[in-house]
Amino acid sequence: MGSRTRALRVSAGVMAAVVLAVLVVPLAVPLDEQAVDLGAKLLPPGAAHPFGTDEVGRDLLLRCVYGLRVSLLVGVVAALVATVVGTAAGALAGAFGGWPDRLLMRLVDLFSAVPHLLLGIFVVALFRPGIWPVVASVAVTHWLSTARVVRAEVLSLRSRPYIDAAVSGGASRWRVTVRHLLPAVLPQAGLAAVLMVPHAIWHESALSFLGLGLPTHRASLGNMVNSARGSLLAGDWWPTLFPGLFIIVPTLALAGLAGAWRARLNPRHRSELTL
């Protein structure tokens, strides 16, 4: 077993545990993550509270799991939306060329010219706080790179003889795009989506940390790090450390999975015999 296989297994294991935790814990543990117990505030990690409690006595382990649930939901949905939008825009621009291409790419330039966080904040500010404005904010700032990558890929594929053969065979522009070009870029787009999930989680955390994301009573990893600032200055490290770890570990695991995927997309040798 090579080190790459081991990294893949560890990543897959971590992600499986994460997904299991966020799905099962809220069903199986009958505790309320928002239950305030001022008598037990800022307890260090111990038997009753493995991760300790926060400044209003809420159990940190439970809040971390709930926070991760929200972050993953936001991350995955936002990455999916951004990938679908970006792939569609990139494929359209690349396959059709001409004015659709120019229009879409100028739009991409326009969005890219604005700092992402600023753009994200602007979108969030348009709506009442909640999950969907955050999803929209992440999607709006993240479809751009996918659109660019997909367009470049489609442009390079478009000059392949097999596209010529399809055109000569009578295929319409739409058929060439949907049957020959899109399937070729989907693995790349899928990889981009997986790589985007951690980005989206960070984006959500950043917005919440700034107080612009989810309502403060909702457990979100960004909210938790934000509200722990005061206690950290007082020397209480656990309300910052555990939510921080919950942001970093799934990020690394997802990056590991994406890396394995990428390695499969680019097999190094493809000799006539090692098919």
């Binding site: 392949r160 097999y162 399809a166 055109v167 000569s168 009578g170 399937p183 070729a184």
Partner: peptide
């Protein structure tokens, strides 16, 4: 027009490049 395009059958030099790998 499709009927003009499909009046031609084309074969290229490199079969690998001219076949959709999927």
């Amino acid at each position: 027009p499709r009927e003009q395009r499909t009046a031609f059958g084309v074969v290229f030099q490199q079969p690998r490049q001219s076949a959709d790998p999927r």
